[in-house]
Design a protein around this nucleic acid. Sequence first.
DNA 1: GTCTATAAATAGATAGAC
DNA 2: GTCTATCTATTTATAGAC
Lengths: 227, 227
Amino acid sequence: MKRTPGDTRTAIIAAAAAEFAAHGFDGASVDAIAARARFNKAMIYYHFENKQRLYVEILRDGFRTVGAHTAAIADDADLPPAAKIDRFIDALDDMAASRPYMPPMMMREMAEGAVRLDADSLRLLSRIFENLRRILEEGSRLGVFRPADPVLTYFTLVTPVIFFRASTPVREALARQHVLPAAQVDATRFVTHLKSIARTVLAASPSPAAPAKQKKRTRQSRPGEHA
Amino acid sequence: MKRTPGDTRTAIIAAAAAEFAAHGFDGASVDAIAARARFNKAMIYYHFENKQRLYVEILRDGFRTVGAHTAAIADDADLPPAAKIDRFIDALDDMAASRPYMPPMMMREMAEGAVRLDADSLRLLSRIFENLRRILEEGSRLGVFRPADPVLTYFTLVTPVIFFRASTPVREALARQHVLPAAQVDATRFVTHLKSIARTVLAASPSPAAPAKQKKRTRQSRPGEHA
DNA sequence: GTCTATAAATAGATAGAC
DNA sequence: GTCTATCTATTTATAGAC
């Protein structure tokens, strides 16, 4: 149970993230965060200015990570646009997997109009959108995507990932009550599904919806690989 | 400023819905709800057992309405499956428009694992899913839809509507900061976009995405529903 | 850096007057 | 039905010992 120096802050952040995700900003008490981190409440105020700064720091870190990740994808000169979309979706799902507290926190933050996000956090959040927009534009410029509204596309591709992962507990509860199909739908299948939708929807040509009868594309992007 | 009898309860519910949507269950104080309803806090406890019952009642009413609406759509023998999907999406968007507090409340409730929903509320919620499942099955049986996983479909079609409408304040804030395209994307366009995706994704044959030959039906809101 | 103790404000909920 | 006043628990945050 020995703690290495610098760990305290990290432990508090981890505990806070879990509490904020589960109960929201108001529902998560500083006491509960401290208890989960196995520290005293005063410790939190030693390391952080107040509850809100702690909260914002967590979100900001998440936004920054996805922002950097998706920026790298958008910048990759070797990657065709269709592959970039796949990677973009993967980047979101990777965040959700490695930071499971992010989807719930983002859902709540959207729900209350992002009132707790300062300008800096909003900028970081908007960069994710911006990176998607750039990919769409490149695809359109190269003629492989049809012109697509970035906002519409963002909400059809990004938010389902957030929602799906955030709703895992509810889906499991419904499955236990036998109101959902017993067969669990895992995130990997969902992501695959979303990618295929993205491909279909963004395709430039009046291409068919069904891949069944689809002629083999000569040498278009066939990006199945995960990040 | 005269109140007709029976209005008190309604006023409290309206105020509570707005507060819950904006601040969440824990963030919305009974005092604030009472103040918004222009009543005293004690009035709330006269009409409702406690804060949580009031909260659940609001959600339950919303679920029940969409559940009934979508059930009627699924049951409609005259409607082809593709049109039913359109109507299903409309039903969700109608709820979001007439009950703007529902999307935020649903997002928050998902985020915390629906811990406040009793079995009855969960049943009402699951009926919405069930109605979509029935439409998909019918379409598949009739050969006009490809077999589609109802859970995957639910999360690609339903959650974007919720998320999009719940995020209206944030989108507007970002637009004011000029980080989003100035041209506002309105809900109608988004719904149209979603319907076209649904059609493309669900199409059985390598058929065109265009809804060329759909019978025109006046899409009308259900009678006697909430203002 | 970490703790105990406590201040100060606010929460949900109730009693009882009218 | 509606109000004022209040009880009790919990909240964020801080002071100060070690």
